[in-house]
Design a protein around this nucleic acid. Structure first.
Lengths: 230, 230
DNA sequence: CCCCTATGTGAACGCTCTGTGAACCAGCCC
DNA sequence: GGGCTGGTTCACAGAGCGTTCACATAGGGG
């Protein structure tokens, strides 16, 4: 999961502790500019914004995270009792709020519920193998939370591999299953695509696609390969 | 607005008073059967369920209101601090919760926010995505507070995109879903409309519609859903 | 240790897809 | 009817990307 954007910097100690105990990764930011600057490549996983001390700065951050092309979701704001009325004019800037001082269990429950809802909204078709994730609806892929920029054929090949882990395929089989049954082309085409896939997977994951000499390629760990360390 | 379904009967005095002061009409029910029996013709306008005294009965009501063809929304539950953990297994039964004893202003703010959000969902006259706002009643659109002068087809295409963010659609799918199922025309039509949309969105927002080569188009930043939030 | 074959690698070629400008055509209003 | 608005189609250019080739390297059997 992508880290949460937390305001202010440093955040209230109890908030930091609650997030840590809840197992969330997060990064504190002091203003909207820093929030944009430190944003992960595929966006913040959400935001927790404490408004008590600097409500103006807090809502300005919320606004900058929300009112843009790829809005951050979910956003939880922490407010004091006296600030409750201020929320009314800013309903669109947050998804949930908690009264400060808060009980850690309440904030934890709110975050859990927010992520439940945002995950529930549109459950995409996902193919997973280890840290590798393929989103079939958006044609996007990521490994170890790092987005992969794949071309169409690379994506199709990786999808085929991921959905048939551990099995060895000859180049001819791959050509017919991935490229199409009537495809007639050189077998070296497969080699080149495998090479590019390995490169994009990164050195540490290149071993996911193994060469089986004189036969073809295999994806993932073979079942009998228990004696060999990676 | 349709009356709210409130549990238990009679509700805690402070809850009744809060609802009255907030201007909500409501009706107390003692169990799921009575809730169904007294339901208005067009359904409950929402529900507020206090779980402190009879959690079993409370969640059974929530279940019966939610797990059916026309689920009641929104549902706010009131729980004691010790019941927070019980919520985890029932994330789908409520939209928001408040800790009891509660401050009237907090419950008021939560109800207001719930209705604000469900107002978005239930009333289809406004569609929002980031700074992009579509008014379905007036056929007007704006991005970053700048009005967009869209033609009919441009508007329909943008509306379809905005209501299905993150997903990739082939040109054929777009033709059938936006233009009509029986439409038979060139796929390049989609390209041209996408181009004009991008132009009218402005250079800074043109990236909202992304090209997925050999596949089609995708709107908005696809969020990496699919990881578990826990 | 040598040789042959299979695979990795870098680069170049050429096809396909997309962006773009412009023309064409069908309603519609004055 | 004539101009106007807006949807569709066409032609062309550019870029992306799949394919192929040539060469380097590794692996394995004799």
């Amino acid at each position: 999961m992508d880290p949460l954007c937390v305001f202010p910097d440093p955040p209230p100690p109890l908030l930091a502790q609650t997030l840590d105990l809840g197992g969330y990764s997060w990064k504190a930011v002091g203003n909207a500019a820093i929030a944009l600057q430190h944003e992960p490549a595929d966006g913040w996983g959400g935001a927790v914004i404490a408004c008590e001390d600097d409500p103006e700065g807090a809502f300005s951050i919320a606004r900058s995270l929300r009112r843009r092309d790829n809005p951050v979701e979910p956003i939880l704001v922490l407010v004091s009792g006296g600030q409750l009325a201020d929320l009314e004019m800013r309903e669109d800037l947050f998804d949930d709020f908690a009264l400060s001082p808060f009980h850690p269990h309440e904030v934890e429950a709110r975050l859990r519920h927010l992520f439940y809802k945002s995950g529930q909204g549109a459950r995409p078709e996902i193919v997973e193998y280890g840290t590798l994730v393929l989103n079939l609806e958006t044609y996007q892929a990521a490994i170890a939370d790092r987005p992969l920029d794949l071309t169409y054929m690379e994506y199709e090949l990786l999808k085929f591999f991921t959905t048939h882990p551990g099995k060895v395929f000859t180049r001819e089989t791959l050509l017919s299953r991935v490229w199409g049954y009537e495809y007639y082309g050189g077998a070296r085409t497969v080699d080149v695509h495998v090479r590019r896939l390995r490169a994009k997977l990164g050195e540490e994951h290149a071993g996911l696609i193994q060469t089986v000499r004189s036969v073809g390629y295999r994806f993932g760990q073979s079942r009998w390969q228990g004696h060999k360390a990676t």
